[in-house]
C-alpha cells in the first residue's frame, strides 16, 4: 500500500493535476476514481468531565452541557476539546463559561497536533487502483476550565 504523505493542513483532497499526470504510476491519483473517506480521529480519552466540541451539535446544547457539569455535576474542572474548525467553538464555550461565572473560573489552554488518516478507495474495483491512505495534520485545543484551588 502506498502512503503518499500529504503534509498540508487542508481538509479537502487536494490532488495536484500536475501530480496526476506524472509518469510514476505509484503516485498517480485521479480524483474521479477515488472516494475520499475520512477516518475518525484516533482514540480519545473520555472521562466524565471531558467535553468534545463539534460543529454539528447545537452550540447552546454544548454550552449547557458544560454548565451542568460544572454546576450540577459537582466537577471542579472540565476539559473542553476542539479539533480543527471546532477550535473556535471550544474557545467560545470556555470564554462564555468564564464570563458567566464572574471570574470564578479559570482557563488553561493547551494546543496539540492530531494526525488524521484519510482513505482513498477506488470507485471502480475493476480498475487497477489500489486503495490508499493519506495522513494529514490538524490542530487541536484542549481547554481546562477549573475553579482555582483556594
Amino acid at each position: 500500500m502506498t502512503e503518499p504523505r500529504n503534509p498540508g493542513m487542508s481538509s479537502a483532497p487536494q490532488v495536484n493535476p500536475a501530480h496526476a499526470e506524472s509518469s510514476s504510476p505509484a503516485v498517480e491519483m485521479d480524483p474521479v476514481e477515488y472516494t475520499l473517506r475520512k477516518r475518525l480521529p484516533r482514540k480519545l480519552p473520555k472521562r466524565r468531565n471531558d467535553v468534545y466540541v463539534n460543529m454539528k451539535t447545537d452550540f447552546r446544547a454544548q454550552l449547557a452541557r458544560c454548565q451542568k457539569l460544572l454546576e450540577g455535576g459537582g466537577h471542579r474542572e472540565i476539559c473542553i476539546h476542539g479539533l480543527g474548525l471546532a477550535i473556535n467553538r471550544a474557545i467560545n464555550i470556555a470564554l462564555q463559561l468564564q464570563t458567566s461565572s464572574q471570574g470564578a473560573l479559570q482557563l488553561a489552554a493547551n494546543t496539540s497536533t492530531v494526525e488524521l488518516v484519510d482513505d482513498l478507495e477506488p470507485e471502480d474495483p475493476d480498475e487497477a487502483g489500489e486503495p490508499m491512505t493519506r495522513t494529514r495534520n490538524n490542530s487541536a485545543i484542549h481547554i481546562k476550565v477549573f475553579y482555582p484551588e483556594p
Partner: peptide
C-alpha cells in the same frame, strides 16, 4: 498533571467525535 489522567483512560474513549 493535566496530561496524566487522560492517558489513564485511553482505553475507553471510542469515536467521540464525528468525522470531520
Amino acid at each position: 498533571s493535566f496530561l496524566q489522567p487522560k492517558r489513564l483512560c485511553l482505553g475507553e474513549g471510542v469515536s467521540v467525535l464525528p468525522p470531520h
